[in-house]
């Protein structure tokens, strides 16, 4: 029989118990060779060895994790051929290919998570921008020491009003205002939830001892305002009129 000594790949000749009878020089270059093939195999691959390297499978290819001199967990493709009660085994290392593959997959993965992350960042930026716009849609402008104006802009939804409300209540509380004008001239649609929220806002302000005056609310917007706060708030058609009446009253005092 031709010896496998000079085969350019790790080669083993094994008996039925997987005892090593012979091996190639390439094998001893890579592996620390003991008595039995199983000692070269990673513990978690050993089950596979006992199951598949046996005479019932006269010719088979399997993959094993093996311990080399350089790597405690190297992937090998193993080709097995039985000749009577002896097995010829060739081992081809695949670690490099597997590493390349997993390297590429990791790159893809990290790109994926970067994309996810960027998307998320953009989403949060957008949410911040929306919140900022909401805040700017209802600024509190001090007119006199005791009166302030809140011009409202755009469509009014509950979430927008919640943002506006926080600022307004803070300013009223801080400034000891007697009267606040809410100017609706630049307002488009008001959602039902928005109307509820507005009513609550007026009620809160009234509870704080400050009068609310609604200005420029159009008839189509008025429908659906049911809360106490809104009902209690007097209204006027124009801001000019509202302010001049306020001044007149002040002068009479």
């Amino acid at each position: 029989m031709v010896s496998g000594k000079f085969l350019p790949l790790p080669y083993f000749l094994l008996d039925e118990e997987l005892g090593i009878l012979d091996y190639s020089r390439s094998a001893s270059d890579i592996f620390l060779i003991g008595d039995n093939f199983i000692t070269l195999v990673d513990e978690e691959s050993r089950q596979k060895v006992s199951q598949y390297i046996q005479p019932d499978f006269s010719e088979i290819e399997i993959e094993l994790n093996m311990k080399t001199k350089y790597d405690p967990l190297a992937v090998f493709g193993i080709s097995v051929k039985w000749e009577g009660n002896k097995a010829h085994i060739l081992c081809v290392e695949k670690t490099k290919e597997v590493d390349n593959l997993s390297g590429q997959l990791i790159k893809l993965r990290s790109r994926l998570s970067d994309t996810d992350f960027e998307l998320l960042e953009k989403k949060e930026e957008l949410e911040d921008a929306i919140e900022r716009i909401h805040k700017l849609s209802g600024p509190f402008i001090p007119l006199y020491a005791e009166a302030g104006l809140v011009p409202l802009f755009g469509d009014l939804q509950a979430d927008k009003l919640r943002v506006i409300e926080e600022n307004i209540l803070y300013r009223i509380d801080e400034g000891d205002y007697e009267q606040v004008f809410f100017d609706f001239h630049a307002v488009g649609e008001i959602t039902d939830e928005g109307k509820k929220q507005l009513g609550q806002l007026f009620e809160t302000i009234q509870l704080m001892g400050t009068k609310t005056m609604i200005v420029g609310l159009s008839p189509s917007q008025v429908r659906g305002f049911k809360s106490k706060g809104t009902v209690k708030a007097p209204s006027m058609a124009s801001l000019k009129q509202a302010i001049s009446e306020y001044i007149k009253k002040q002068n009479h005092k």
Partner: peptide, 16 residues
């Protein structure tokens, strides 16, 4: 993989 039905490469792909 232990049952020799798939390769390490298949495993990596599946993981990804």
């Amino acid at each position: 993989w232990l049952r020799n039905e798939i390769t390490v490469a298949d495993e990596h792909l599946a993981t990804s």
